[in-house]
């Protein structure tokens, strides 16, 4: 988002930390609306197929879901701590915390992979005969499950890319204790990824 501090063709240097953060917040609004439409679809189909959604949700693995929730919340904390570390001129600690965040994000994806794999193994994927035999309500549940958690996983990957991008800049001292807005923006984005999961988790795993 932030476009300052780099040389442009005419050396027009423009740095506006508040503006960069504002841009990130506006982008987060669009992301929330993006998922908001899906939450709308979810609530309509949940309302229409209450029993089927109840039955289908029993197939989800609450343990893996809980572990992944904890992982994401902790990773949100580590990225926030990394910002504080950089503010206090502790570059090494900031990078370490970013690496921890990335490791946690990656383990989230690994868990997701095994979780999805198990669903495929049990014939619970769109188009599978077993799922079709369970009726349209359960089908809708799994369409939404795969689409929404898949889109969320895509955001996890984008967020990781963003963190790697700013981590390189911290390493090269392009982001420092008095110029850390881009790291803050990466953190904001990461909190969004976390926040969306906080809603996905109960909607799919916990409500029975």
């Amino acid at each position: 988002m932030s476009d300052h501090s780099t040389t442009q063709s005419h050396g027009l240097v423009h740095r506006d930390d508040e503006g960069s953060k504002l841009g990130m917040w506006l982008f987060i609004f669009t992301e929330i609306l993006l998922f908001g439409a899906l939450f709308l679809v979810y609530s309509v189909y949940r309302f229409k197929n209450q029993d089927a959604f109840h039955a289908a949700a029993l197939n989800l693995d609450t343990v893996i879901g809980t572990i992944n929730t904890v992982i994401l919340i902790v990773s949100s904390a580590t990225i926030a701590m990394s910002i504080s570390a950089l503010q206090q001129k502790n570059k090494k600690l900031a990078i370490t915390l970013m690496v921890i965040t990335l490791v946690l994000a990656f383990s989230f994806l690994v868990n997701k992979y095994f979780e999805w794999g198990a669903k495929f193994h049990h014939g619970l994927y769109p188009g599978a005969e077993h799922l079709i035999s369970l009726g349209s309500g359960q089908n809708q549940f799994f369409f939404l499950y795969f689409f929404m958690t898949g889109l969320h996983a895509f955001h996890v990957i984008v967020g990781m890319g963003f963190i790697i991008f700013v981590m390189r800049q911290v390493m090269r001292d392009e982001l420092t204790y008095n110029n850390y807005t881009r790291l803050e923006n990466a953190g904001l984005y990461w909190h969004l990824v976390d926040l969306i999961w906080i809603y996905l988790f109960p909607l799919f795993y916990l409500i029975h």
Binding site: T30, G36, G127, N139
Partner: peptide
Amino acid sequence: TPVVGITLVLVVFERVFQLGFFDPAFGGD
């Protein structure tokens, strides 16, 4: 704009991966 964006993605996925968000045959609306 994000609302229509994701809706069009749903249409694309529905065509490619045989989902049925809007197909009455799958209980879609």
